[in-house]
Simulated scan of single mutants.
Amino acid sequence: MPKLTGQLVIATHNAGKLREISALLAPHGVECLSAGDLGLPEPAETGTTFVENALIKAHAAARAANLPALADDSGLCVHALGGRPGVYTADWAERQWFEGEKGRDWYMAMGKVEGLLCEIGPKVDRSAHFACVLALAWPDGGEAVHEGTVQGSLTWPPRGQRGFGYDPVFIAKGMAETFAEIDPEEKHRISHRADAFAKLVAAQFGG
């Protein structure tokens, strides 16, 4: 597998995600550019798994920019719901087409999960995990995948004002507070994304 050096395209149009990934890779001498800054189109995420969707985005960016590219796909998997919402994690927070990302209703999405768990019964298994897949792709078609998870359980009602998405109802294993209650730095240290990045850095840079 070729090693990352020089420029790397981050297959995202999200400036916040670009900053986060750039900070993680900067110590290794990698310069990150975003697909948004390069004007690359966003491919349709037609996969049925996190791995498939991450690879779709990474390969599309690598081909379009003729540079190595990194993409991620992540979500919440509730064990009693057969792994749902999974790759449809964001879709459960429905929005109107004109509202953009900020129009997603995450409280409604959390409520959908809780409603389905309540339908199963009061003794339902409330365990869940967040999953993150990081996919690297090279212009010649080469690829590498690194998967990270953080195990935990769901609580109700939502608690905390930090974090985003389903963070207010997710309690990581061994903790008492939700992801939306703990310090963001602590969350980043134990998160599914941190797990996946540790594996990527070890594979690419021997760290």
Rank of each mutant, 00 (worst) to 15 (best):
C77R: 07
I190N: 00
E94C: 08
V9L: 13
S127W: 07
E186M: 12
A176I: 12
K102R: 10
F98R: 12
S22I: 02
R95A: 15
G206D: 02
G29Y: 08
A194K: 10
G206H: 01
W92Y: 15
Q96T: 15
Y88A: 14
L8Q: 08
D167Q: 02
L25S: 00
P157M: 08
L25Y: 08
V87E: 03
W97L: 13
G121R: 11
R104C: 10
N53Q: 13
G86K: 01
A69V: 06
R84A: 15
E181D: 06
E119F: 01
L8D: 11
T48F: 10
I171A: 00
P168T: 01
A202Y: 02
Q96L: 14
C132W: 12
N66K: 12
G100L: 06
A44N: 11
L18N: 00
V78D: 01
H188Q: 09
P68E: 03
L116V: 01
A54Q: 08
E20T: 07
V145H: 08
A196P: 04
E101F: 00
G29M: 10
G83Q: 02
K3L: 12
D183I: 06
K57E: 11
S153M: 01
D105A: 12
H13E: 04
C32D: 07
K3N: 09
L40Q: 11
A65P: 03
E181N: 04
F164E: 10
G152S: 08
G148S: 08
A60V: 07
G6I: 03
Q96V: 10
R189H: 06
A69C: 11
I190C: 00
L67C: 05
E94F: 04
A90F: 01
T155R: 09
L33S: 00
G121P: 08
I182M: 14
G165Q: 03
N66H: 11
F170Q: 03
L76K: 02
I120R: 11
A93F: 05
Y107T: 13
A198N: 09
D37Y: 00
A198Y: 06
N66G: 10
N66C: 11
W97Y: 06
K173W: 04
A54S: 12
L24W: 06
D183K: 14
T5V: 09
G83H: 01
N53M: 09
I56P: 10
V145C: 13
N14S: 07
E177F: 13
F50H: 15
K3R: 14
P122H: 12
L25G: 05
T5A: 15
T49R: 10
G207H: 14
V133I: 15
P157V: 04
N14F: 01
W106M: 15
A71E: 11
G29F: 03
D140A: 14
H192R: 07
A198L: 09
L33G: 01
P158H: 03
M110G: 09
R84M: 11
R63D: 12
I21R: 05
